[in-house]
Design a protein around this nucleic acid. Structure first.
Length: 814
DNA sequence: GAGTTTGAAACT
DNA sequence: CAGTTTCAAACTC
């Protein structure tokens, strides 16, 4: 501003004054007035930078790489709630100034440091873009700056205390992200990584970032209170950092694909800051628009949830990756997702807050996952709350490697069980489950359909419609709550308390319920080989096995309707059931015995029938339910092996990336997702099954059959079971077929089926081709045994003795 | 879409 | 632990 005037005032003749040096000096003059303009806050902030030792300012990037992360939950983080939430009246100068100083100090290092790198003007008044008196003008140049001047935000935001807090948290997060970002950049450069191609762009970005940062820091006018600044900073940081991150993070894919324009940032935001993204989208929209408090709170909440305050920088990076994985898990190729993301976000950005609505399915999927993430990382519901059992899925979403799954499992006491519950439905890519063990087993077809049709893939919620329960009751009342997810837009609930803003209530309620019934949030139906409670499973065994079906109590539905949880879950009734006149087609309980267990004949007949039905694929069924099942592609055949639920750990783990939350547990299909048996195949299987006995007493007799089957060229499976335990090779979803025949007879009850450690890439068609190929994962072996994988061979030690050897065609884990 | 049925969860 | 109430989904019309 001043520069032009000044320049105009200069005699045209004095060309000497046009020299860069002179110009520079000339332009420095405005600084003085500024000092007087700014209050002590700014002064302090400004001084603080001067005070900073040269060494600290010009420390090598390396130093900062280490230092940055170490910043205590960030200086910003110390903008305590009390401070921030204090009434404006109480927010006296000292507080403000201190905050300002912190803010400044927090970023000054970065600024200085980066300055040396980019040689760009940090706060060069000469540029005219850094008119300190006009903070709004610091939207200078970042390719992404299509934003509304901060004053717009300032004027529009209506704050309350909570909001302030949230904003501050966001600020903290973004600042940390920024640090992380810088670290990444530094590392990149130090590492000699080729960033040349983007040097120029990069430089611009740095400059933008720097100018933005410093500008903001210096430009905070005294009228801006903390939360405003927070919003401003958060927004700015999100933008500038976002873009940079997209260019700099290890995810080359991102930078490669993301053009050095807003898209990069957009992508980044999408990846990492569903939170900030949403937030920013809102903030940068038309200044006239009023943002609903709740909206922002929710958004911020989720955002923070994804990147909990506890998280260090490293954690955030993981968060980024995880989000990336979400994309992958959602079945979208990065490129596709990115494109869609960019396009849509761009659109949404231009449209301001329509962001959410304009999300493509893929994004919605992410959104859904966000919900899950909001819960998981937070650790409050999943990690810290050991009782909260429903949330692992989010972490499990890291499809890329079983290792991750395993590690996740290690982190979560209930992971095993949770993982087991992932439905293996052939899911649409966008369908991302959030705790599907519940939904999988209980979502009605209608609901399922509803969800699927609406592409609510992006919704974590189950679309409950609670009216009186406030969404704080278990499944029967509120699916969302039971599933461990917050209710969201799609829900039609009333007086809902199952929202982030009521987290405390939700958590306390959850704990209360679990206190009353530890298994309250456990899957009602165990879909793993083993066993149910009736088998006297060891409660201390794997978490999964600890989950047991409580059993239904049907009286009038005869277990033939969805009123029956067993039926709904696609499993037969068990001895735990107290149902009357049970006619569960999946296996009924007659008196004290389970039909499917005791009555081989009946079972066989049933299977036969089922097989025929399947074979005909449309043939009339005995009852409507069966018909319905078939129509749903749920082949009862799989369910006819109640003790060996079609859904097992291995399959679930292998297919995690593909599971669908939208689909309820179809009785069985599932499990088949990819592995769904074709009608013909099922029939074939049936034939095999018919020849074999089911009763445990027949196990030994049948063993040979199993081994025969297992004797296929690709595998060599020795199966011995101490104690006559039923041992079943891990039946992968796809290997279900042949193995399942025998699998039924070879169930090792104490050991859930285990997942392959191989990449899930093996799970698909490959598995189908290698039905006899087994692999084991230590995780799944639980405490009863362990597996030592040696290249292609694994042997399991059960209770001290080798129970059987698994030969894998895949290299075992190191 | 309204009303009924149903059975799990919550409550006593 | 049993009986009752509450509740929302499933189901029927």
């Amino acid at each position: 501003m001043d520069t032009p005037d000044r320049a105009a005032a200069q005699p045209a003749a004095s060309r000497a004054e046009d020299s860069p040096v002179f110009s520079f000096i000339n332009n420095l003059s405005p600084i003085e007035p500024l000092k007087s303009v700014y209050n002590t806050n700014s002064l302090q902030g400004y001084q603080s930078i001067n005070i900073t030792s040269i060494s600290s300012i010009f420390t090598s990037p390396h130093d900062n790489v280490h230092k940055e992360p170490r910043l205590p939950k960030s200086s910003l983080g110390e903008i305590s709630e009390s401070e921030v939430c204090a009434d404006g009246s109480n927010t006296n100068k000292p507080t403000k100034s201190s905050n300002a100083v912190r803010l400044f100090a927090c970023t000054s290092t970065v600024t200085q440091e980066t300055h040396t790198v980019t040689c760009s003007d940090v706060v060069d008044p000469a540029t005219g873009s850094c008119d300190l008196a006009q903070p709004a003008q610091f939207d200078n140049g970042s390719p992404d700056h299509n934003t509304t001047p901060c004053h717009g935000v300032r004027s529009d935001l209506k704050q309350d205390k909570c909001r302030k807090l949230d904003v501050v948290q966001t600020v903290k997060n973004t600042v940390e992200k920024r640090k992380c970002l810088f670290s990444t950049e530094i590392q990149l450069m130090d590492g000699g990584l080729s960033v040349n191609d983007n040097d120029e762009v990069l430089g611009c970005e740095w400059a933008d970032l720097i100018s933005t940062t410093s500008g903001e820091l210096l430009a905070f006018d005294s009228t801006m209170d903390e939360h405003h600044r927070g919003v401003h900073l958060a927004a700015k940081n999100a933008e500038s950092c976002g873009y940079l991150l997209s260019k700099l993070t290890g995810d080359g894919e991102i930078s490669d694909r993301a053009p050095p324009s807003a898209s990069g940032q957009v992508y980044y935001q999408e990846l990492m800051m569903g939170e900030d993204q949403t937030e920013n989208a809102e903030m940068f929209q038309d200044g006239q628009q009023t943002i609903s408090t709740e909206e922002i709170q929710d958004n911020i909440y989720e955002a923070n949830g994804c990147i909990p305050l506890d998280y260090k920088v490293e954690s955030q990076q993981r968060g980024i990756r995880r989000r990336c994985l979400v994309f992958e898990a959602a079945g979208f190729s990065n490129s596709v997702v990115q494109k869609e993301t960019v396009e849509n976000l761009s659109v949404s950005k231009s449209k301001g807050k329509s962001h959410v609505q304009t999300q493509p399915r893929g994004l919605r999927g992410i959104g859904l996952h966000l919900n899950a993430l909001a819960l998981t990382p937070k650790g409050k519901m999943a990690c810290l709350d050991t009782m909260a059992s429903a949330l692992l899925p989010s972490s499990a979403s890291e499809k890329d490697a079983h290792v991750k799954l395993l590690s996740a499992g290690e982190s979560f006491p209930h992971s095993g069980g949770e993982l087991l519950e992932f439905p293996m439905d052939d899911c649409s890519a966008g369908d991302f489950p959030v705790n599907d063990h519940v939904s999988s087993q209980s979502v009605s077809p209608q609901k399922k359909r509803r969800k699927t049709d609406n592409g609510d893939d992006g919704e974590a919620c189950k679309r409950c419609s609670c009216k009186k329960s406030k969404c704080l009751k278990l499944y029967v009342y509120c699916e969302c709550f039971a599933a461990g997810v917050y209710c969201s837009e799609p829900c039609s609930c009333q007086g809902c308390m199952n929202k982030p803003i009521h987290e405390e209530t939700v958590l306390s309620t959850r704990k209360q319920i679990e206190f009353r019934n530890p298994l309250a949030f456990a899957p009602k139906v165990i879909r793993m080989s083993d066993a149910g409670p009736e088998t006297g499973e060891d409660p201390n065994s794997t978490p999964a096995s600890a989950r047991h079906k409580r059993g239904c109590n049907c009286k009038k539905s005869s277990c033939l309707k969805k009123y029956c949880e067993c039926y709904q879950g696609g499993v037969g009734c068990s001895s735990n059931c107290r149902c009357e006149s049970c006619k569960n087609t999946f296996g009924r309980r007659d008196g004290e015995h389970l039909t499917f267990v005791v009555s081989d004949t009946e079972l066989t007949e049933e299977m036969k029938q089922e097989g025929e039905q399947t074979e005909n694929c449309g043939k009339e069924k005995e009852n409507d339910q069966q018909k319905a099942n078939v129509q749903n592609e749920d082949h009862p055949l799989l369910e006819l092996v109640p003790i060996t639920p079609p859904f097992d750990l291995s399959s679930s783990l292998l297919k995690l990336p593909n599971f669908s939350s939208a689909k309820p547990p179809r009785p069985s299909k599932a499990r088949s997702g990819n592995s769904r048996l074709s009608a013909s195949k099922a029939a074939t299987t049936l034939q095999s099954c018919k020849s074999s006995k089911v009763a445990g007493s027949d196990i030994d007799e049948e063993m040979p059959d199993i081994l025969k089957e297992a004797n296929s060229p690709n595998s060599c499976v020795k199966t011995t079971s101490p104690n006559g335990k039923r041992v079943s090779p891990p039946h992968n979803a796809l290997s279900i077929s042949p193995n399942r025949k025998g699998g039924r007879k070879l169930i090792l009850k104490s050991i859930p089926s285990f997942p392959s450690l191989m990449g899930d890439s093996n799970s698909g068609s490959k598995m189908s081709n290698t039905d006899n190929t087994f692999s084991a994962s230590p995780l799944a072996l639980g405490k009863h045994c362990f597996c030592t994988c040696r290249q292609h061979m694994c042997y399991l030690e059960i209770d001290g003795s080798i129970s059987f050897i698994l030969l894998s065609t895949e290299p075992g884990p190191s």
